[in-house]
Design a protein around this nucleic acid. Sequence first.
DNA 1: AGATATAATTTCTATGATAAATGAGTATTA
DNA 2: TAATACTCATTTATCATAGAAATTATATCT
Lengths: 242, 242
Amino acid sequence: MDLPYLNLTQQLVHKLGQAIMQGQYQVGKGLPSEADLCAQYNISRTATREAVKMLTAKGLISSRPRQGIKVLESKHWNFFDVDVLSWILNGQPNLYMLRHFLQLRLPIESEAAYLAAEYAEYDDLKDIEKALGRMKNATTGQDDSHEADIEFHQSILSASQNPFFIQLKSFISTALQVNLRFTNRMQAVTMEEYQAHVDIFNHIKNGDSEAAAKCALITQRETLAIVNEKIKRLEQEEKKSM
Amino acid sequence: MDLPYLNLTQQLVHKLGQAIMQGQYQVGKGLPSEADLCAQYNISRTATREAVKMLTAKGLISSRPRQGIKVLESKHWNFFDVDVLSWILNGQPNLYMLRHFLQLRLPIESEAAYLAAEYAEYDDLKDIEKALGRMKNATTGQDDSHEADIEFHQSILSASQNPFFIQLKSFISTALQVNLRFTNRMQAVTMEEYQAHVDIFNHIKNGDSEAAAKCALITQRETLAIVNEKIKRLEQEEKKSM
DNA sequence: AGATATAATTTCTATGATAAATGAGTATTA
DNA sequence: TAATACTCATTTATCATAGAAATTATATCT
């Protein structure tokens, strides 16, 4: 694997980030002081402080004289930061989290399709088409269905020509990986799913923004309905066992 | 004003952040080296390095030995970070940026209304109602229309019970301020606008998620249409003058 | 009781020194 | 000549130490 070299500061950033997401340090309560962190992780104050600053920049903690280092409330966390997101997912992903993801993806991707229909350029359409090709191959097991799926969604976000949607590419990509963890296998793309994606592409190509958005919305609402159903069953079981 | 105390590190973070957004340092090209920054801003290496780390955490720059400090491509920037966003807006807001904002707000706020209709709790409804009250007063000039508007949108995001939507509150709030800068005055809320908001609230209260979403969507599409029209006219004028 | 001063704790800032990573240029070798 | 290995200069990364500043708790005084 092409794992990048991480310097001490970044190592600590990741360790602390994960520790926070695993609930190792409670919200509002303090982390160890600067000096204690140095001792615990056996690194210099410089590196420790820089790590703290990076986590501060991501909205996870605050650090002030006398008060020490505190975990902030989750509403301050930058969920759209790829690091933060991955720490959360590696921490304690659950069905509720998955639902939250889907609830956000649903409107975003639908509107991205809408915008793509209006603003997509030639190269964007080529990219979407390419992803569709991979997806078709995945129906017969000739390509990785998961990768193809991600590529399709990303290409539509790119086609929106909107920097905010483009920024969300990494967010969506990460979100799709959680999805995978729950579905938990290399499921082949069904012919139905493939067809739904083809439909979206055609609407985009024809510049029919309303149809593209609607089509994308329906697909996602179905996925969300499945998760909601799962949660419902889960909650009923919990109720029974009480 | 209650401007918070900013330490040297954070001061530099803001200065550099704004400088980058104003295009003072070109993407791909390097910023001054660590040592030069110290000299230019007359602060220690410690503070300088920590500022660089914070900007790195926000995706604006990268810093490596020998290579120095470089501005990353904008696709790496964390647009959803409030600091980054405000730097962008203070940098060079324009109609295209405003359109990008609206394009994102549109699906988000619509779906937030949908979710609010499904998941809002008693207190959430109270908050929305309170914001509506302020908005009504704003129609007769008895309250600040801008503040009331922001409060309304925020309360709906909160009611969604989804942490991602809740995180977007600060984003939306900042975005609304750009909007204000373009409309550029304390316009009173019209009775029509107020009524549209009341409708959304009623749908949420009745748990009619589809209607709530649709209602919110329509309002926003209208706003967006106005901006699109403005841009169109602007582009035609530019064409003429060439 | 309330205002004011003092003290203790923790981060913030500054500085100096050394290590490590990186890339370019140079020499070496097949 | 081309590929490889080596050296060197540059820049950030890390460590260590010292003092300043901010914040809170406590004690003191009126």
